[in-house]
Nucleic acid binder design. Sequence first.
RNA 1: GGAGAGGUGGCCGAGUGGUCGAAGGCGCACGCUUGGAAAGCGUGUAGGCGGUUUUCCCGUCUCGUGGGUUCGAAUCCCAUCCUCUCCUCCA
Length: 426
Amino acid sequence: MHDIKWIRENPTAFEAAMSRRKLSGTAEKAILLDKARRDHVAGLQELQTQRNEASKAIGKAKASGDEAAAQAAIANVAKIKQAVQDGEEIERKLTDELNDFLLELPNIMFDDVPDGADEDDNVETHRVGTPPKFDFEPKQHFDIGEALGQMDFEAAAKMSGSRFVVLKKDLAQLERALANFMLDLHTQDYGREEVVVPLLVNANALIGTNQLPKFEADMFKTTDGKYLISTSEVSLTNLVRETTMPEADLPKRYTSYSNCFRSEAGSAGRDTRGMIRQHQFSKVEMVSIVHPDKSEAEQMLMLEAAEEVLKRLGLAYRVVKLCSGDTGFGAKRTFDIEVWLPGQNQYREISSVSTCGDFQARRMNSRFKPTEGKGAQYVHTLNGSGLAIGRTIVAILENYQTKDGSVIVPEILQSYMGGKTLIKAT
RNA sequence: GGAGAGGUGGCCGAGUGGUCGAAGGCGCACGCUUGGAAAGCGUGUAGGCGGUUUUCCCGUCUCGUGGGUUCGAAUCCCAUCCUCUCCUCCA
């Protein structure tokens, strides 16, 4: 959410920032709504002042036993009453209108975010690793998994519908191994605090991390009005909602392994086969809560940590800086990591590392008290996948496949797989 | 799920319709005291919004949250969330 005061004082800059998001007239509308509200509040407060003074006079008269004066004052103030009540109702309405409008405006992107329409305009920053060469035609992960008899889309479809999968045996263990490996890396090498989070959250939490109000269609909602998280960014970031912490508590670095649930509304027909796009998938997430001066460096550190996961798994990848058209609603800047998939013969997103500035902090009311000086400031929040586990399984299957349909277990995972070195085709 | 109790400032805690944004205590800050420290004494110590100005000040809203009653609500009513106790159920 944006600071209305800032919009008021920098309408041109704000309008320019929103135009990069393909929006126009936002500053004008926000200022209009704000002006209407403030003009109204000024008048309302005048009425409230009158009422309060009159009421105090009544109190005084009663206290001194002057009943006649009290009755006269009561008659006097009764006239104001209705006007105050009506005014309060209008104030609520005007405040809601302004807030509802602001909640639907996306974050301001950094200047270094390249202009562009969609993912084709993203800018590659670097590549790491060499895609493996095969002396046979590499298969896609679902063919490998199904041939192994350890990946079952049919069974999942019978009980849950499309976009679900059942993993068995070594692939089930691989999921668990990956989670442990990633969590160990983030906690031991990057000082993150491991957290187990709620998967079901209320609407306010989702407003905080900007899934709501705009993207409700992407969420699964329960019958009692809660939502399944689409990423544990939601739960991790909301750990600091409605708090004011001492500056010394920053940075807070969290990591969590959780399942994620997405309705995938609007992505019908895309990635319909395989595990790339599922309604339920698991992910190890990183979230950082930092001092505003530190968020720039933090994003680089987070990106480095996510890359380290791929490096240790021996997977080739590239990093792209998302262009304006591909940068998410709440982000000021996002780097995606795309892993090489031999079966698809292309790089596919496996991690996304975003910095949000104080955008989410305002929505959540998360602040810190500076050690020096007074007042409270909004924290900065960042989130990144480290990594999406389903897609990591996909990448391992495709990159480490052998001609006979077996899959080599990456060295770093062997100790997490009970010493297993090969997922063997039977 | 059933029955009951409760949510007040950084913390504890008083306040059941009238100058209450809120006694008292703790904590914290500053000052006095001291060779220094402790104790003691004094002063100060919530936030949001708006106005003015950005040193001072004024208004308004906020006693879990949202409504309502009333000239006036921390105090009364309704709804809701959360916490605790007992019962029930349960991995």
